[in-house]
Design a protein around this nucleic acid. Structure first.
Length: 261
DNA sequence: ATGGTTGCTCCGCAA
């Protein structure tokens, strides 16, 4: 038997400590083969490697105290793991990359930016410029590249529930969208655009104001895939179920299925 | 709503 598909996922779990039962349940439901995880909020010594190993998964992690933290979780072994953006001095744990077979995945937790014009917004734009350089360099070495994660950018007006509330504000400003477009200009495609847009296209709903119940969401979690992966593209879907579970993350998993690998 | 929730930590900050 040959393995005919690889399902890539990205999921901002908003604390892997709190969400580990959800993650294990979701992994055990055979939902994905390789998962980019953001906001683990765990120092490296507290990463739940034993629970994941017992469940049959390989993992790699890059964490810090209280905030941020990223990880890769995979059925197959993960090789050549690197953390951070080369040449970009960052005290925040937001990037981990690894190879599974011929595939290279860069898992990113892009800064939120807080508010347009703030110091955190400047950091976000500088960070995205550094990520662009990193992606361009990575593509030369790894033609089969996917950049998956919480980008904290809604690409278009259709990716928000309320343009009056969001257009021009944080996650939806022109400069952020231009920075995302610059990432794509390196030779990547938003896997979401490889299928007909589904009715439900959001990936995050604010905990506040009953955001999920009211459908007040955004599409900010993405898979950016290189040209060889577009050739292998099979399917794209947003798995809304974990957002319905008790004590959920504010984000839900997003899956990109590739043929082959 | 410039915030009504959540998670972490030390009780404010980040999202």
């Amino acid at each position: 038997m040959t393995n005919t598909t690889t399902r890539l996922a990205t999921w901002n779990v908003n604390s892997l400590n709190v969400r580990l039962p959800h993650m294990l349940q979701w992994l055990n439901s055979d939902a994905a083969d390789l998962v980019a995880v953001q906001e683990t909020k765990l120092t490296d010594d507290r990463f739940p490697v034993d629970a994941l190993t017992e469940a049959g998964w390989h993992s790699a992690w890059h964490g810090q105290k209280t905030y941020n933290g990223v990880a890769l979780i995979s059925r197959s072994p993960i090789e050549d793991v690197t953390t951070g953006i080369p040449g970009f001095d960052d005290t925040q744990a937001r990037v981990i990359a690894g190879s599974v077979g011929e595939l290279r995945m860069i898992c990113v937790y892009v800064p939120n930016g807080q508010a347009v014009g703030s110091d955190k917004y400047s950091y976000k734009l500088e960070w995205l410029a550094a990520l662009r350089r990193y992606i361009a360099d990575s593509l030369r070495e790894h033609p089969r590249l996917v950049v998956s994660g919480d980008f904290n950018i809604a690409p278009t007006v259709d990716d928000t529930h309320d343009p009056d509330r969001w257009e021009g504000n944080i996650l939806c400003s022109d400069a952020e969208r231009a920075a995302l477009a610059a990432l794509l200009d390196t030779g990547l495609t938003d896997a979401f655009t490889c299928v007909e847009p589904p009715e439900q296209r959001f990936t995050w709903w604010d905990y506040r104001q009953g955001g999920f119940r009211r459908g007040h969401g955004l599409r900010i979690d993405h898979h950016l895939i290189s040209a060889p992966l577009v050739e292998a593209f099979g399917d794209f879907r947003i798995d809304i179920e974990p957002r319905r579970w008790e004590r959920p993350s504010d984000h839900t998993p997003v899956i990109c299925e590739l043929r082959g690998n």
